[in-house]
Design a binder for these strands. Structure first.
Lengths: 101, 101
DNA sequence: GGCTGACGTCAGCATGGGCTGATGCTCACA
DNA sequence: TGTGAGCATCAGCCCATGCTGACGTCAGCC
């Protein structure tokens, strides 16, 4: 179900930079230095986006010495995918419903 | 695939009011008057959101005399759902990939 | 212990986008 | 043809949010 609370999660994913981060992390677990190189963004900016993703539960961190690895949480993405799929299915099922004016 | 162009579509859906509109339209085709009643929003505000949804291809309109019906396009929602599902599947498949620092 | 690199936090700035009121357009109906 | 309802557009305001620079913290290496 797509509750209003999920708009916050969708909003987190509705940013080009954050979506790029998520796509990169879907392929392999990376640390901030890698992400800085691959995205070309400033470290501060990236750190802010990563904080947003962390707070939303989209990624989780794993300290490793001086470095910090970021790993993607597939469950969150799957829940979003299921919500939209369910919405599309509902729309298809009720395609002929039309309320009279 | 989640191209950068899709962030615009996701951004359109990342608004509580617009998501509410989409959920209502998933159940039945409605015209603006109904949506004004059901959401409690002003007509002007709703018209703005509907324009955004129209431009994004999420809904399509059907004139009916003085009224205008809004119908949901399930294809767009399905494409978003598939993109996120694919991303989640990729993340699961590459869960053990970790780039050395 | 001093230094450097990795990373986070904070304050400030600027842009984007949502909300509103005013206005205009079009259709239906008397 | 005049009127009112349904709907869109526009300009303006204001708040949320993304970007940046400066600074602080922690770990590892000399």
């Amino acid at each position: 179900m797509l509750t209003s609370a999920k708009t916050d999660l969708i909003k987190v994913l509705a940013d080009p930079m954050r979506l790029q981060i998520v796509q990169l992390l879907a392929v392999e677990t990376l640390c901030t230095t890698h992400l800085v190189e691959m995205t070309g963004a400033k470290q501060t900016n990236l750190s802010n986006h990563l904080k947003v993703l962390r707070d939303a539960g989209v990624v989780e961190t794993e300290p490793c010495g001086r470095f910090k690895y970021y790993r993607l949480c597939p469950d969150v993405l799957e829940s979003v995918a299921e919500s939209f799929a369910e919405l599309a299915a509902t729309a298809r099922a009720n395609a002929d419903n039309k309320r009279a004016c």
